[in-house]
Design a binder for these strands. Structure first.
Lengths: 334, 334
DNA sequence: AAAAAGACAGAAAACGTTTACGAAAATTTA
DNA sequence: TAAATTTTCGTAAACGTTTTCTGTCTTTTT
C-alpha cells in the first residue's frame, strides 16, 4: 500500500479532492465544519502533501540553491548554518552544493540547480575568472552573491567592506609600532582578495610604509596553504615584525610554520587574520583578526534573494556590511 | 517569454514531445539521426529538463535529505562535504537541515523532508531520547544514521567503534604512566556517548584504575561547554594527571580554561580528544586524539542508503568502522 | 414569498515530464 | 515480391496537486 494522497482522503471523506485541498490550504471558500472534519481525517490517515506535485502546479519549489567553494571551511559552514535556519523560518529549504574552487564545476552545479527549479541561488563564487559565465547564468534565475564584491557587474551581492577592514588592520599594526608589515596570501583571481590587499596598500600609502606582499597562487586559503607559504618564507631571514594574513585559516597555517621554526607569536612576530572564524580564538595564541558578520551576511543575502524572487524586475542591489577589529593576543606593541 | 519546455522544442523540431523526451533520455527506440537533430535544437533553444516534472512521474527526486545536529561543527561539516561530493557523483543532491540538537525540530524536519519526497534520509540523530519517534518515522522512508549506534533498534547505521576507540585512548594514557585519568563530557542521552564512556570504564576496569567522570548535561559538545566544564573543575585542586574528552571540541575548551588558569599542557596535564577534527592539530598544543574516518563514514552511509533505496525490502544493516589513535603532543609520559 | 446574494463544493484543466500502447514505415526474410 | 520483422515515432494516460469556472444550496433582502 502506497502513500496516502489527496484522492484517498477525498474518497474517505466523501468529497471531491478539490475540497480537501482547500481544507488544508486555509482557503476561505469552505465550511468550517467540513474543514475540521477533513483535517481530522487527514491526520488519521497520515496524509502529508506531496511537495513535488505542489511545486509542479505552483511553479515554485521553496528551495534555495546554495553554492559554496568548500562546505568544510569554518567561515562558510558558520554562514551555511545561519542561512539554513533563517531559510527554514522563511519556509525554504537549502540545497547545498560544493564548487570545490573549480569554475567549471561551479557552472555545472549552477545549471543543475536551475534544472531543479530552485526558486533562487545564493553563491560564494570561486573568483573573478568566472564572472563572465556567471553573468550569463544569472539571467536564468534570481541570484545573490555573498562575500565577493562583483564590482562592475550589476549583480546582487552582499559583502563586508574588505578594503576598509584590511586598512584598519594595517593601521592597527602601525599603531602598535610596526613599520615592516608583510601581507600574506594575496590572490589574483578574486575580487575579494584584490579589495583586501587594496586596503593594505591604501594604509601603507597613507602611513608612508613600504608594502610587502606574498601572493598565493592556490585558489584556496587553507591552513595548509598558509603553512606552506610561511614555511617557504621563513627559510631565509625576514625583516618584517608583523604578518597580516588574507584569512584566518592562512594565519593558523603561519602559526604552525612559526612554531616549527621556533618563532614565537607575538613575542618575535605579530600576526593578524581576517574572517574571525570560531577557531581563531584558541589559546595560547588567540588570533587578532577582522570580523565578518556572518549572521548579518546570511540574513541580508536571503532577504535580498527573497525580495528578488518576489519582484524579479527590481533593480540589482548591493549591501556592504562593516567589518570590525577583534583584538586578541597575537599582536604586540614594539 | 518563459522557460523552454519539451513541447516548445517538439514544435520547432516538428515531432511529438515524446520523441524529444526519448532523444534526451538515451532511449533506444529512436533514430540516430533524429536524435542528433533534436539534441542540437535543444542546445540551440537552451532547453533544460524540468526536474520537478520528471520527479512527478518517475516518483523519484534524486535528492537525499541530510539532518545534522549542527552544520558548523567541524566534524559534521567535513562529513557533509564528503557526502555532498560523493552524492553528486552518484547523481544525487543534498538537502541539508539543522536539528540544532532539538528532538522536536529533528522530528519536524524529518517529516518536512518526507513531504518533499526525498529519496532517502541520512541523519546524525540528536540522541537516544528520540529513538522512539525516529523508529516511527523511518518506516516512511529509507534512512541511515551516522555516528549514533542505534543498538537494539534494527535501523541502518554506520558508526565508528566508539567503545574500542575510547578504550584505546585510555590504555594509551595508561601506557604513558597515567593512573588518574579524568573523563570529561559524558552525556546521558546519547548512545554514542554512552559507548564512549563504556570504553573508558572497560579500560579502567581492566587496568585496575579508578574511573572519574564529569558529565555534560548540555546536548552539545562544543568548545564553550568544554571550557565551562573545565573552568568549574579547575576551581578546586584536582588529582588527575590526564583528561580524556568525549570530543575534540570539548578538549579545545579545556585548553582554553587550562590556559587561563596557568595550567600547562602537556607539562602539568595531559589531554586527549576524540574525532580528530581539522582544528585539533593546531600548535603549539596539537591534540592527541582518536580519529573518526569521516570520508569512509560518509561513503558507507551513502552506499548503504542507495542500496536500501534500490532494494527497500533488504534487511537492515550496520557498519562499524575502526577508529585509530592519532598521537600528537598533548600528552606526556610521567 | 419571490428574488437576489452569498456560501460552499464539484468538475476539469493545467503544470512538464515519462512511458505503455499502437500504428506506420523501413527493413529483412522467404 | 509478399510476408514477417524490426525500427521509429505519435497518442494518450499518468503522476498529485492548485485553481478557475460553474452550479447548487442557503441565507438574506425586499
Amino acid at each position: 500500500m502506497g502513500v496516502v494522497t489527496l484522492k484517498d482522503v477525498a474518497k474517505v471523506a466523501g468529497v471531491s479532492y478539490a475540497t480537501v485541498s482547500r481544507a488544508l490550504s486555509g482557503s476561505p471558500e469552505i465550511g468550517e465544519n467540513t474543514r475540521k472534519r477533513i483535517i481530522k481525517i487527514c491526520e488519521e490517515m497520515g496524509y502529508t502533501p506531496n511537495s513535488v506535485a505542489r511545486s509542479m502546479v505552483m511553479k515554485r519549489t521553496n528551495i534555495i540553491g546554495l553554492i559554496v567553494t568548500s562546505i568544510d571551511n569554518p567561515f562558510m559552514s558558520e554562514m551555511i548554518a545561519h542561512l539554513e535556519i533563517y531559510a527554514r523560518q522563511c519556509g525554504y529549504n537549502l540545497m547545498v552544493c560544493n564548487s570545490s574552487y573549480d569554475p567549471a564545476l561551479e557552472k555545472e552545479v549552477f545549471s543543475l540547480l536551475v534544472g531543479r527549479k530552485v526558486d533562487g541561488i545564493i553563491m560564494i563564487p570561486v573568483g573573478s575568472e568566472s564572472y563572465d559565465v556567471l553573468k550569463m547564468l544569472t539571467v536564468q534565475i534570481p541570484t545573490v552573491f555573498i562575500g565577493e564584491n562583483m564590482m562592475d557587474l550589476p549583480e546582487n551581492y552582499v559583502s563586508v567592506d574588505n578594503t576598509t577592514g584590511m586598512q584598519q588592520a594595517t593601521e592597527y599594526l602601525y599603531s602598535l609600532g610596526h613599520r615592516n608589515i608583510l601581507y600574506l596570501g594575496a590572490r589574483d583571481n578574486s575580487m575579494t582578495h584584490k579589495l583586501r590587499v587594496d586596503g593594505y596598500y591604501n594604509a601603507c600609502n597613507k602611513l608612508g610604509i613600504e608594502p610587502n606582499v606574498i601572493r598565493n597562487s592556490n585558489p584556496r586559503s587553507s591552513i595548509q596553504v598558509g603553512y606552506e607559504l610561511a614555511k617557504a618564507h621563513f627559510k631565509k631571514p625576514f625583516e618584517e615584525t608583523a604578518i597580516l594574513c588574507a584569512a584566518d585559516t592562512l594565519a593558523i597555517g603561519v602559526i604552525q610554520a612559526a612554531y616549527e621554526k621556533g618563532i614565537r607569536i607575538p613575542e618575535d612576530l605579530s600576526l593578524m587574520g581576517f574572517d574571525n572564524i570560531t577557531f581563531s580564538a584558541l589559546p595560547p595564541i588567540s588570533l587578532t583578526t577582522v570580523n565578518q558578520p556572518k549572521l548579518e551576511l546570511a540574513v541580508s543575502a536571503l532577504d535580498m534573494l527573497l525580495n528578488r524572487i518576489k519582484r524579479p524586475e527590481t533593480p540589482h542591489t548591493k549591501t556592504i556590511l562593516s567589518p570590525s577589529l577583534v583584538i586578541r593576543n597575537s599582536c604586540r606593541a614594539i
